[in-house]
């Protein structure tokens, strides 16, 4: 049993004591990345790295203990509520299958995380009138939210919000489409209008011209 408390800048290993419970009465100690709080309220490390203590601005009483790691990439997996960016791989009359390429701002290329948008999760209004083929096409880039962890095969995603939906798509003429409304995109070359569940852009009007 080692009861020594690590100091800032020390190399810590899983289980290293970062802050004992008694100290939390003076300043409110919290666990950041790579750390956790055990049953007695002590802060311990959960990965190998260097101890960093940060104080949120304006709250000098709060102290966040985190461990800086040297791993090549942060371990990021989608959780309920995270915004994900996906590629559409398959569209059926009931659902669309997608490959998750980004979780928040972290890219997870080749992660193999898959998502599914069911017909009832495409938009928040007139959900009984949704036509999957008029909402997504294979190859579209879609911004969605994780609503549940779904099955072992795929995450359950939703695009039922105005800033969720297709953010980039190629038309039948193999040209990038330009969004013109919340449910239409236009090919700049042929002028053909294709239907999509479009995510809200800064301005449809300027893009229309």
């Amino acid at each position: 049993m080692s009861a020594t408390v690590a100091r800032v800048g020390d190399v810590v290993v899983p289980g290293s004591l970062l802050c004992v419970a008694a100290q939390t009465e003076v300043a409110k100690a919290e666990a950041g990345a790579g750390a956790y709080v055990d049953g007695r309220g002590a802060v311990l490390a959960s990965v190998v790295g260097k101890l960093v203590v940060s104080e949120p601005k304006g709250e000098p009483a709060r102290k966040i203990f985190s461990v800086q790691t040297a791993s090549r990439k942060p371990k990021v997996v989608p959780v309920v509520g995270s915004t994900v960016t996906c590629n559409v791989t398959k569209v059926t009359p009931r659902f669309a299958l997608l490959d998750i390429v980004c979780v928040g701002v972290e890219s997870v290329p080749g992660s193999g995380f898959r998502g599914m948008v069911r017909k009832e999760n495409v938009r928040s209004f007139e959900i009984d009138r949704v036509e999957m083929h008029n909402s997504f096409r294979p190859g579209d880039v879609v911004r969605a939210k994780v609503v549940s962890l779904g099955t072992a095969r795929s995450y359950e995603l939703s695009t039922a919000d105005k800033d969720l939906g297709v953010i980039a798509a190629m038309g039948e003429a193999n040209e990038p489409l330009i969004p013109i409304s919340f449910e239409e995109m236009k090919c700049p070359v042929t002028g053909v209008i294709e239907k999509r569940k479009v995510a809200k852009q800064d301005s449809f009007a300027t893009l229309d011209k």
């Binding site: 290993v13 899983p14 055990d38 959960s46 990965v47 371990k75």
Partner: peptide, 11 residues
């Protein structure tokens, strides 16, 4: 696991 950076409660 430590090399992979998987968070663990302890060694």
């Amino acid at each position: 696991l430590i090399h992979a950076g998987v968070p663990m409660v302890d060694f």
